[in-house]
Protein backbone atom coordinates (compact mmCIF):
# COMPACT_ATOMS: atom_id res chain seq x y z
CA UNK A 1 0.00 0.00 0.00
CA UNK A 2 2.66 2.47 1.10
CA UNK A 3 6.27 2.21 0.04
CA UNK A 4 8.76 4.77 1.28
CA UNK A 5 12.20 4.50 -0.22
CA UNK A 6 15.19 6.43 1.10
CA UNK A 7 13.13 9.48 1.87
CA UNK A 8 15.21 12.56 2.58
CA UNK A 9 13.46 15.74 3.57
CA UNK A 10 13.85 18.80 5.70
CA UNK A 11 13.31 22.49 5.91
CA UNK A 12 15.18 24.87 3.65
CA UNK A 13 18.14 25.04 6.01
CA UNK A 14 17.98 21.77 7.90
CA UNK A 15 17.87 18.13 6.82
CA UNK A 16 15.49 16.21 9.10
CA UNK A 17 14.72 12.89 7.43
CA UNK A 18 17.93 11.31 6.27
CA UNK A 19 16.88 8.28 4.31
CA UNK A 20 13.74 6.65 5.65
CA UNK A 21 12.55 3.41 4.10
CA UNK A 22 9.36 1.72 5.15
CA UNK A 23 6.83 -0.60 3.56
CA UNK A 24 3.32 -0.83 4.89
CA UNK A 25 0.93 -3.42 3.53
CA UNK A 26 -2.83 -3.48 3.69
CA UNK A 27 -4.17 -4.57 7.04
CA UNK A 28 -0.97 -3.78 8.90
CA UNK A 29 -0.42 -1.52 11.86
CA UNK A 30 3.04 -0.02 12.18
CA UNK A 31 4.16 1.86 15.25
CA UNK A 32 6.85 4.50 15.00
CA UNK A 33 8.67 5.46 18.13
CA UNK A 34 11.72 7.55 18.76
CA UNK A 35 13.14 10.37 20.84
CA UNK A 36 11.87 13.95 20.71
CA UNK A 37 13.02 15.76 17.62
CA UNK A 38 13.95 12.60 15.73
CA UNK A 39 11.65 13.46 12.81
CA UNK A 40 8.46 11.48 13.46
CA UNK A 41 6.08 14.39 12.93
CA UNK A 42 8.12 15.52 9.96
CA UNK A 43 7.64 12.12 8.36
CA UNK A 44 3.90 12.35 8.99
CA UNK A 45 3.80 15.90 7.62
CA UNK A 46 5.71 15.03 4.48
CA UNK A 47 3.35 12.12 3.84
CA UNK A 48 0.36 14.43 4.25
CA UNK A 49 1.90 17.13 2.05
CA UNK A 50 2.44 19.93 4.53
CA UNK A 51 4.07 22.94 2.88
CA UNK A 52 7.40 24.09 4.23
CA UNK A 53 9.23 20.81 3.81
CA UNK A 54 11.51 20.06 0.94
CA UNK A 55 11.94 16.52 -0.27
CA UNK A 56 15.53 16.20 -1.38
CA UNK A 57 15.64 12.50 -2.11
CA UNK A 58 13.75 9.25 -2.25
CA UNK A 59 10.24 8.26 -3.28
CA UNK A 60 6.88 7.56 -1.72
CA UNK A 61 4.41 5.33 -3.49
CA UNK A 62 0.85 4.96 -2.29
CA UNK A 63 -1.46 2.49 -3.99
CA UNK A 64 0.69 2.68 -7.09
CA UNK A 65 0.73 6.48 -7.21
CA UNK A 66 3.56 8.90 -6.58
CA UNK A 67 2.25 10.40 -3.36
CA UNK A 68 4.71 13.29 -3.31
CA UNK A 69 3.31 14.50 -6.61
CA UNK A 70 -0.17 15.09 -5.17
CA UNK A 71 -1.64 18.12 -3.40
CA UNK A 72 -2.63 17.56 0.22
CA UNK A 73 -6.33 17.43 -0.70
CA UNK A 74 -5.61 14.86 -3.41
CA UNK A 75 -3.77 12.72 -0.91
CA UNK A 76 -6.85 12.88 1.32
CA UNK A 77 -8.92 11.94 -1.70
CA UNK A 78 -6.68 8.93 -2.27
CA UNK A 79 -7.31 7.87 1.31
CA UNK A 80 -4.49 9.30 3.41
CA UNK A 81 -5.46 10.74 6.77
CA UNK A 82 -3.24 12.44 9.32
CA UNK A 83 -4.37 12.81 12.91
CA UNK A 84 -2.37 15.85 13.94
CA UNK A 85 -0.11 15.96 16.96
CA UNK A 86 -1.37 19.52 17.42
CA UNK A 87 -4.84 19.84 15.89
CA UNK A 88 -5.53 23.28 14.48
CA UNK A 89 -8.28 25.60 15.72
CA UNK A 90 -10.47 27.16 13.06
CA UNK A 91 -12.69 29.81 14.60
CA UNK A 92 -15.90 30.47 12.71
CA UNK A 93 -16.15 27.10 10.93
CA UNK A 94 -18.40 24.62 12.67
CA UNK A 95 -17.11 21.13 13.16
CA UNK A 96 -20.07 19.65 11.33
CA UNK A 97 -19.83 22.00 8.38
CA UNK A 98 -16.11 21.37 8.15
CA UNK A 99 -16.52 17.61 8.22
CA UNK A 100 -19.30 17.61 5.67
CA UNK A 101 -17.21 19.78 3.34
CA UNK A 102 -14.33 17.36 3.76
CA UNK A 103 -16.49 14.28 3.37
CA UNK A 104 -18.14 15.59 0.23
CA UNK A 105 -14.89 16.91 -1.22
CA UNK A 106 -13.43 13.43 -0.92
CA UNK A 107 -16.53 11.87 -2.47
CA UNK A 108 -16.32 14.35 -5.29
CA UNK A 109 -12.66 13.51 -5.78
CA UNK A 110 -13.67 9.89 -6.15
CA UNK A 111 -16.44 10.72 -8.57
CA UNK A 112 -19.19 9.93 -6.09
CA UNK A 113 -22.24 12.06 -5.43
CA UNK A 114 -22.36 14.38 -2.44
CA UNK A 115 -24.31 13.51 0.68
CA UNK A 116 -26.98 15.95 1.76
CA UNK A 117 -26.94 17.63 5.14
CA UNK A 118 -29.67 15.51 6.68
CA UNK A 119 -28.19 12.16 5.72
CA UNK A 120 -24.80 13.34 6.81
CA UNK A 121 -26.12 14.25 10.25
CA UNK A 122 -27.43 10.78 10.87
CA UNK A 123 -24.23 9.30 9.47
CA UNK A 124 -22.06 11.21 11.91
CA UNK A 125 -24.40 10.61 14.85
CA UNK A 126 -23.50 6.95 14.70
CA UNK A 127 -19.83 7.88 14.91
CA UNK A 128 -20.17 10.30 17.81
CA UNK A 129 -21.91 7.69 19.90
CA UNK A 130 -19.04 5.32 19.42
CA UNK A 131 -16.48 7.87 20.60
CA UNK A 132 -18.78 9.29 23.27
CA UNK A 133 -18.14 12.67 21.78
CA UNK A 134 -20.42 15.35 23.12
CA UNK A 135 -22.85 16.48 20.42
CA UNK A 136 -22.28 20.02 21.54
CA UNK A 137 -18.72 19.81 20.20
CA UNK A 138 -20.11 19.21 16.71
CA UNK A 139 -21.75 22.58 16.46
CA UNK A 140 -18.78 24.41 17.88
CA UNK A 141 -16.00 25.84 15.76
CA UNK A 142 -13.38 23.29 14.77
CA UNK A 143 -11.21 22.61 17.82
CA UNK A 144 -11.74 26.12 19.15
CA UNK A 145 -11.56 26.06 22.91
CA UNK A 146 -11.52 22.24 22.91
CA UNK A 147 -9.54 20.67 25.73
CA UNK A 148 -6.40 18.80 24.73
CA UNK A 149 -8.20 15.48 25.03
CA UNK A 150 -11.24 16.71 23.13
CA UNK A 151 -9.03 17.79 20.27
CA UNK A 152 -7.46 14.37 20.04
CA UNK A 153 -10.82 12.65 20.18
CA UNK A 154 -12.04 14.99 17.49
CA UNK A 155 -9.17 13.87 15.26
CA UNK A 156 -10.19 10.25 15.65
CA UNK A 157 -13.80 11.20 15.12
CA UNK A 158 -12.85 12.83 11.82
CA UNK A 159 -10.94 9.71 10.90
CA UNK A 160 -13.95 7.56 11.69
CA UNK A 161 -16.13 9.73 9.47
CA UNK A 162 -13.70 9.95 6.55
CA UNK A 163 -12.74 6.24 6.70
CA UNK A 164 -9.26 6.57 5.19
CA UNK A 165 -7.20 3.74 3.71
CA UNK A 166 -4.07 4.86 5.49
CA UNK A 167 -4.33 6.56 8.86
CA UNK A 168 -1.30 8.26 10.33
CA UNK A 169 -1.77 8.97 14.02
CA UNK A 170 0.74 11.43 15.42
CA UNK A 171 0.84 11.10 19.20
CA UNK A 172 -2.89 10.75 19.39
CA UNK A 173 -2.45 9.31 22.87
CA UNK A 174 -0.71 12.30 24.39
CA UNK A 175 -3.00 14.37 26.54
CA UNK A 176 -5.63 11.65 26.88
CA UNK A 177 -6.83 10.38 30.21
CA UNK A 178 -7.10 6.64 30.69
CA UNK A 179 -10.78 6.42 29.77
CA UNK A 180 -10.31 8.57 26.70
CA UNK A 181 -7.34 6.48 25.68
CA UNK A 182 -9.57 3.40 25.70
CA UNK A 183 -12.27 5.16 23.72
CA UNK A 184 -9.83 6.42 21.15
CA UNK A 185 -8.17 3.04 20.87
CA UNK A 186 -11.53 1.38 20.41
CA UNK A 187 -12.29 3.92 17.71
CA UNK A 188 -9.04 3.15 15.97
CA UNK A 189 -9.43 -0.61 16.34
CA UNK A 190 -12.94 -0.44 14.93
CA UNK A 191 -11.40 0.90 11.78
CA UNK A 192 -8.81 -1.82 11.51
CA UNK A 193 -9.55 -3.96 8.53
CA UNK A 194 -7.72 -6.03 5.97
CA UNK A 195 -8.16 -3.10 3.57
CA UNK A 196 -6.68 -0.42 5.83
CA UNK A 197 -3.30 0.33 7.25
CA UNK A 198 -2.12 2.50 10.11
CA UNK A 199 0.99 4.31 11.09
CA UNK A 200 0.90 5.00 14.80
CA UNK A 201 3.41 7.47 16.16
CA UNK A 202 3.74 7.31 19.92
CA UNK A 203 6.11 7.64 22.82
CA UNK A 204 4.28 5.20 25.02
CA UNK A 205 3.98 1.47 25.01
CA UNK A 206 0.66 1.96 26.84
CA UNK A 207 -1.17 2.87 23.63
CA UNK A 208 0.21 -0.19 21.95
CA UNK A 209 -1.48 -2.38 24.55
CA UNK A 210 -4.73 -1.21 23.07
CA UNK A 211 -3.73 -0.78 19.47
CA UNK A 212 -1.52 -3.77 19.01
CA UNK A 213 0.98 -3.16 16.21
CA UNK A 214 2.30 -5.69 13.75
CA UNK A 215 5.61 -3.86 13.55
CA UNK A 216 7.49 -1.34 15.64
CA UNK A 217 10.11 0.99 14.15
CA UNK A 218 12.49 3.27 15.94
CA UNK A 219 13.32 6.57 14.31
CA UNK A 220 16.51 8.25 15.52
CA UNK A 221 17.93 11.37 13.92
CA UNK A 222 15.96 10.97 10.73
CA UNK A 223 16.62 7.29 10.18
CA UNK A 224 14.82 4.10 11.09
CA UNK A 225 17.50 2.42 13.14
CA UNK A 226 15.63 -0.59 14.38
CA UNK A 227 12.50 -2.48 13.48
CA UNK A 228 10.84 -5.35 15.22
CA UNK A 229 7.62 -6.83 16.47
CA UNK A 230 5.45 -5.48 19.28
CA UNK A 231 7.88 -6.73 21.90
CA UNK A 232 10.32 -4.03 20.74
CA UNK A 233 8.03 -1.43 22.25
CA UNK A 234 8.21 -3.20 25.61
CA UNK A 235 11.96 -3.28 25.42
CA UNK A 236 12.07 0.45 24.67
CA UNK A 237 9.73 1.15 27.56
CA UNK A 238 12.13 -0.60 29.84
CA UNK A 239 15.49 0.54 28.50
CA UNK A 240 14.83 3.85 26.77
CA UNK A 241 16.49 4.84 23.51
CA UNK A 242 20.09 5.10 24.71
CA UNK A 243 21.11 1.59 23.75
CA UNK A 244 19.64 1.88 20.29
CA UNK A 245 21.35 5.18 19.68
CA UNK A 246 24.61 3.58 20.77
CA UNK A 247 24.04 0.64 18.44
CA UNK A 248 23.16 2.98 15.60
CA UNK A 249 26.28 5.03 16.13
CA UNK A 250 28.39 1.91 16.28
CA UNK A 251 26.88 0.95 12.96
CA UNK A 252 25.45 -2.30 14.25
Amino acid sequence: MLTIRNLEAGTADKPILKGVSLTVNKGEVHAIMGPNGSGKSTLASVLAGKPGYEVTGGTVEFEGKDLLDLDPEERAGEGVFLAFQYPVEIPGVSNTYFLRSAYNAIRKYRGESEMDALKFMSYIKSKTKFLELDNELLSRSVNEGFSGGEKKRNEIFQMAVLEPKLAILDETDSGLDIDALKLVSNGVNALRSPERAMLVITHYQRLLNYIVPDFVHVLVDGRIVKSGGKELALELEEKGYGWIEEQAKAGV
Binding site: P51, I90, G92, A105, S141
Partner: peptide, 30 residues
Protein backbone atom coordinates in the same frame (compact mmCIF):
# COMPACT_ATOMS: atom_id res chain seq x y z
CA UNK B 1 -5.13 33.57 5.97
CA UNK B 2 -3.52 31.19 8.42
CA UNK B 3 -1.40 28.63 6.62
CA UNK B 4 -1.83 26.03 9.34
CA UNK B 5 -5.62 26.24 9.08
CA UNK B 6 -5.42 26.04 5.31
CA UNK B 7 -3.27 22.92 5.43
CA UNK B 8 -5.46 21.35 8.09
CA UNK B 9 -8.49 21.70 5.84
CA UNK B 10 -6.65 20.50 2.76
CA UNK B 11 -5.39 17.49 4.65
CA UNK B 12 -9.04 16.59 5.17
CA UNK B 13 -9.70 16.71 1.45
CA UNK B 14 -11.02 20.25 1.03
CA UNK B 15 -9.47 21.85 -2.07
CA UNK B 16 -7.30 24.88 -1.44
CA UNK B 17 -9.65 27.44 -3.02
CA UNK B 18 -12.62 26.13 -1.13
CA UNK B 19 -10.65 26.06 2.09
CA UNK B 20 -9.54 29.64 1.55
CA UNK B 21 -13.10 30.82 0.91
CA UNK B 22 -14.29 28.96 3.96
CA UNK B 23 -11.65 30.62 6.12
CA UNK B 24 -12.58 34.03 4.76
CA UNK B 25 -16.20 33.32 5.43
CA UNK B 26 -15.31 32.18 8.92
CA UNK B 27 -13.52 35.46 9.45
CA UNK B 28 -16.56 37.45 8.34
CA UNK B 29 -19.03 35.13 10.04
CA UNK B 30 -19.08 37.00 13.33
Amino acid sequence: IRDDALFYMQSRGIPENEARDLLIYAFAAE
